[in-house]
């Protein structure tokens, strides 16, 4: 089953077209990774899919339902209530975590299920504690975000996203704000989720991780999809831009 369909997405900022006709599909249980140089539009695709940005044109479809439908080259969004209910389909893990600093770790994870999904406090707390346990952070439940390392904060933010029981989890460069040693712990969490068949779309600069964890990889450059397919296929691509990107990447 298709969790997400993004058809012919276009997006401009101040007249500069940063996404030029991108289409992608995410199937249930699939891990899709988007790679590409900075400024290629990877994050913008994610921000359009998570409705943080509005698309100029194209369709955005979750589980067969239209969040936005292209009408004569303009994306027309569904009404507010429908969009609100559709947000429950996905979660997003940010590069900078964006935890709520005035909430304890536990409250960060259980607040939205209580306030937004109207779950009972007991149920939300049980779910939150189980997730923190899974993230190895059960003993940090009463701490505040500033007392945690970057890697721990990112694990809390993953728990916060999972607490909403999303069908699809987006990651926007989840390790870019972390030291190399903390990067590993986050990548391991994502691999564990992949092993549990969590459907995920990951924007990352971690090439060997992308190769390991992905079912499919999309290589983007200048707002278009240049190469797409299984990791082996993409990494052994003969496409000049793809080869150039990988060569520059290996020089680092």
């Amino acid at each position: 089953m298709d969790i997400l369909n993004l058809n012919h997405l276009r997006k401009s900022f101040d007249g500069l077209e940063v996404i030029k006709d991108i289409s992608l599909t995410v199937k249930e249980g699939e891990v899709l990774t988007i790679i590409g140089p900075s400024g290629s539009g990877k994050s913008t695709v994610l921000r359009c899919a998570t409705m943080l940005e509005t698309m100029d044109s194209g369709d955005l479809i979750y589980l067969g339902e239209y969040a936005a439908k292209d009408e004569n080259g303009v994306s027309v969004y569904a009404d507010k209530e429908k969009l609100h209910s559709m947000k429950g389909n996905f979660g997003l893990v940010f590069q900078n975590f964006n935890l709520f600093p005035h909430y304890s770790v536990l409250k960060n994870v259980m607040d939205a299920p209580v306030r937004v999904q109207k779950k009972s406090r007991e149920e939300a707390k049980a779910t939150a504690m189980a997730l923190l346990e899974q993230m190895g952070l059960a003993d940090k439940a009463d701490n505040y975000p500033f007392q945690l390392s970057g890697g721990q904060q990112q694990r809390v933010s993953i728990a916060r996203a999972l607490a909403m029981k999303p069908k699809l989890l987006f990651f926007d460069e989840p390790t870019s704000a972390l030291d190399p040693e903390l990067t590993g712990e986050i990548l391991k969490v994502i691999k564990d989720l992949a092993a549990k068949h969590m459907t995920m779309v990951i924007v990352t600069h971690e090439m060997s991780f992308a190769r390991d964890v992905s079912d499919r990889i999309i290589f983007m450059d200048n707002g278009v999809i240049v190469e797409e397919g299984a990791p082996e296929k993409v990494f052994s691509s003969e496409n000049a831009r793809m080869k150039d990107f990988l060569r520059r990447f290996n020089e680092k």
């Binding site: 998570t50 409705m51 943080l52 609100h84 947000k87 429950g88 996905f90 979660g91 997003l92 940010f94 900078n96 964006n98 935890l99 709520f100 939205a112 306030r115 937004v116 999904q117 933010s157 916060r160 909403m164």
Partner: peptide, 15 residues
């Protein structure tokens, strides 16, 4: 207040 706070709340579905 960083814009990320609004974005995190938005994605979580807060009104």
């Amino acid at each position: 207040i960083p814009v990320g706070q609004y974005e995190a709340a938005n994605v979580l579905g807060y009104s």
